[in-house]
Design a binder for these strands. Sequence first.
DNA 1: TCCCAGGTTTAGTCGTGCCATAATCTTGGC
DNA 2: GCCAAGATTATGGCACGACTAAACCTGGGA
Lengths: 228, 228
Amino acid sequence: MPVKDATGHDVTSAIEDYAKAIYALESREGEAVSTNALAERLGVTAASASGMVKRLDELGLVLHEPYRGVALTPAGKRVALEVLRHHRLLETYLAESLGVPWDRVHEEAEVLEHVLSEDLEAAIAAKLGNPTHDPHGDPIPTADLRIEERPTRSLQTLEPGERGVFVRVSDSQSEMLRYLSERGVRPGDALEVVDKQPFGGPLFVRFGDEVHVLGGQLALVMRVEAAT
Amino acid sequence: MPVKDATGHDVTSAIEDYAKAIYALESREGEAVSTNALAERLGVTAASASGMVKRLDELGLVLHEPYRGVALTPAGKRVALEVLRHHRLLETYLAESLGVPWDRVHEEAEVLEHVLSEDLEAAIAAKLGNPTHDPHGDPIPTADLRIEERPTRSLQTLEPGERGVFVRVSDSQSEMLRYLSERGVRPGDALEVVDKQPFGGPLFVRFGDEVHVLGGQLALVMRVEAAT
DNA sequence: TCCCAGGTTTAGTCGTGCCATAATCTTGGC
DNA sequence: GCCAAGATTATGGCACGACTAAACCTGGGA
């Protein structure tokens, strides 16, 4: 891995993955990330994650308070956002310019994000007209690594009568992505919850003229920006 | 490197590079490749190359006669051609669809060739209309890994009065590539040697209406298909 | 206050991958 | 038959990243 970060240290794919994971957990939970959560997300043992966290700390990418949790430093956040930018630009590019099926772009991007050069990143961004969001509705960090993070709620939490805009869905949920796109539901669509069954049951949601029935699992991962 | 070859073995980037190098040397020299030549091309010591060759032999990718040289097996040739196809498709794609400068595509492709999935390879080939040659004039192996290898001569070997077609130039000679393209000389162009200075001196070569003066170094790497 | 469970960290290993140096061996020309 | 060039083995190193087992904190409840 010949990739170097701003401070001249090698940044391996694994390190990038850890930074990405910490960033995701941090922005979801809003506080220091626990070793266990990190380990689970990455599919390694807690001991392995602990060891890696130590390395990240030595590299100055995270701040690690033993037994307390881990948080990205500015340098670490840069690494995470850089990879995130790569990932989301690639997803957009693969889908729009190469016609790769929606539910395949994620895993392709997962590999390519680690080897994309800055030059190629720029070329792709230019070709796409510097998009701000990827096909799943996720915001793409800008070239100077700023990202617009608007708070969203799970569709699941909306009550009947509430309206909002379907903003995005996790890009790792290939099945659900395909399901939604087959029914013409896309990020950016306005919606209104018509009815809701209790206990994680399905929601009846109106998109335009059509009412869709969305299962509890699905409604849980769909992120919505509530109407003002 | 989770990439597997047809027989289920892991094929790392290094292995792909060795296969590529052996293929190139084999087709240039037409005989078994020496350990030294391989080592030099790859920038490693002869001992390292020797060790790697042993591994390749165990993997069934090469046939190694100790002290005699090494040659690709059909399986090894497949690995080499697969990487070559990736490389040349990527070069073509980067240049044509992403506007990456000619003299940059080689090094980008050098990295990406090892991580390109078969799906993406197919998507790129389709997008380009299944090209048969890359921007340097090198033939691209087909999807079933056949390659058209027409014999070429170095421009250097042509005598005044001889005609031919400029077929290609090594893609690793970035400087020369840029030099040629700036002067409007491209693969496929017909040419005639007008005059030739002795002792590796420059050649005077006519392309269309213009006569260009090409230094000995340059004429050496330019490959020509002599007129029938 | 003490104790314990759950979460975390260390210690010690392993396996892969790839290259290097030094020493030994083969081969072929003379 | 000798020798130099070339090739091979023997040995070691280093980075990476994961694992198991065992020790270790921390906070909440009894």
